[in-house]
Design a protein around this nucleic acid. Structure first.
Length: 432
RNA sequence: GAGAUUGUAGCUCAGUCGGUUAGAGCGCUGGUUUGUGGAUCCAGAGGUCGCGGGUUCGAGCCCCGUCUUCCUCCCCA
């Protein structure tokens, strides 16, 4: 016998979770479409050189890379963004720019698995390609907002920052070459605290005491902690240099749009400590956390990457996009007890008590299906208590009994499994 | 990749100093009720103690290897 097992970091998803996940993806995709994002699909497997174009050393170590049967060097995709870069360059002329797309699918990373971190997981990406306009950034923020709202999540914060501000800061302290290290260190502030960040900036990044203090002074700036008009408060920093000025003005413009876009001002705020580790971001970045579960990490994040297609084409295409971490959201919703558990998509189970009337059961079932109600018929005649228990376990909301007694009376028994009510019903409309 | 940690029934876990036939709760199956569920009661099934090797008269327990779990670093969703 072969022992049934899955690879480390890979998992099966059972109906109770898969139903929730599919429902959530459906809702989120509806939001994407409402904003005009079109679905695309790209292969799970790509030539390694395509994926490595943008990859750092860290990412290389995490690749699922191998030789295929034709001895080609191939790699499983580790995100949707790099394949997107190849895709838009290859199909630019057919797409029409600017181009808005979403992609939902699994990606693979060979890192060591931990709770909530798998080697195969689902990413929901949506990106706006081919425009430098900050209105595109604003649209991405709105999509994040409406995606979470449609999933019944209300207590979340989209933190906003701009890479250009961080670059401008690095310029100011003459550490432009270290901006990546600074970002990665600053990014840990919520995890290890500001004192540790300060220590690391000196010992690991190699900043001077003075430069470190400047960085620390800067990254604690957040709109929520600021009294009065935030943009007036930070206006002075525009004098640092052109990069800083541009970064702040972009945020100002973004803010102006968001204020009038109808999204709740409690759900977004500017915070200079938001760094985003990923190297390819060049402008405004976002990171969304759940107010009640900050520890679960970012559930939706992204930003602007204006050099996306540089390695595939001479005429560069800018882009801005974000990704919703659907697996993490599911974990969050479970903890917040927003998810109600069930193991079947069917709302109604028609019990089978007598094979002589099974045909009538199917007529009833199909009538319900025509009314868009998911229904299944129990396949064999067994004791009714077994069929009740089955419906209970699976999570059907109603059980219908239709047999000889009902046929002669011209009605059927309708049991509401949640309330316990069992009533004779004459019409299927009682189920609506 | 480095360090720490875990592995016994479908699940959660006991298992004494190395000692004879490895336990519990939940779940599962059947009955109690040959057409009426959820926390009744009764019974039952289910384990090469992760895998391989070693020490020993004897290993779930000790040693080595390996896989796996989980955590930290790293990186990220």
């Amino acid at each position: 016998m072969i022992e049934p097992k899955t690879l480390s970091g890979f998992r099966d998803i059972l109906p109770s979770l898969a139903l929730v996940k599919e429902d959530m993806l459906y809702e989120v995709k509806k939001v994407f479409r409402k904003f005009g994002f079109a679905p695309i699909e790209t292969p799970h497997l790509e030539y390694t050189e395509i994926l490595l174009g943008k990859g750092s050393d860290e990412i290389q170590k995490q690749l699922y890379r191998f030789k295929d049967n034709g001895n080609r060097d191939v790699t499983l995709r580790f995100d949707h963004t790099v394949p997107l870069a190849r895709f838009v360059v290859q199909h630019k002329n057919e797409l029409g720019l600017p181009f808005k797309r979403y992609a939902v699918g699994n990606v693979f990373r060979g890192e060591s698995p931990q709770s909530g971190r798998y080697r195969e997981f689902t990413q929901c990406d949506f990106d706006f390609i081919g425009t430098y306009s900050i209105t595109a950034d604003a649209e991405i923020v709105q999509v994040i907002f409406h995606s979470l709202k449609t999933l019944q999540i209300n207590d979340f914060t989209i933190y906003l920052n701009n890479r250009k501000i961080m670059n401008g800061l690095a310029e100011k302290i003459n550490a432009s070459d270290k901006v990546g290290d600074i970002l990665r260190t600053v990014d840990k502030i919520n995890k290890i605290g500001s004192e540790q960040v300060q220590k690391l900036l000196i010992s690991e990044v190699g900043l001077s005491q003075e430069a470190t203090e400047e960085v620390m002074r800067f990254i604690v700036i957040s709109q929520r902690e600021t009294q009065g008009n935030f943009f007036e408060f930070i206006a002075n920093y525009k004098n640092y240099n052109a990069t800083m000025k541009e970064g702040i003005e972009e945020l100002e413009f973004l803010y102006k749009i968001l204020e009038k876009s109808g999204i709740d001002s409690r759900n977004y705020t500017i915070d200079f400590s938001i760094a985003r580790g990923l190297g390819y971001y060049t402008g405004i970045v976002y990171e969304t956390t759940l107010d009640k579960l900050p520890k679960i990490g970012a559930v939706a994040s992204g930003g602007r990457f204006d050099n996306l297609t540089k390695s595939f084409s001479n005429d560069n295409l800018p882009g801005v996009g974000a990704s919703i971490g659907i697996d993490r959201l599911i974990a969050a919703l479970e903890q917040l007890e927003i998810i109600k558990s069930r193991n079947t998509p069917a709302k109604v189970l028609i019990a089978n008590v007598d094979n002589n009337y099974i045909a009538d059961s199917y007529v009833l079932a199909n009538t319900l299906r025509d009314a868009n109600i998911a229904v299944e018929v129990y396949p064999e005649v067994t004791k009714l208590n077994k069929q009740f228990a089955f419906a209970d376990k699976k999570g059907h909301q109603y059980l219908v009994v239709f047999g000889e007694n009902e046929a002669t009376k011209g009605e059927f028994v309708l049991a509401n499994l949640q309330t316990g009510d069992k009533t004779p019903a004459k019409s299927i409309s009682d189920l609506y």
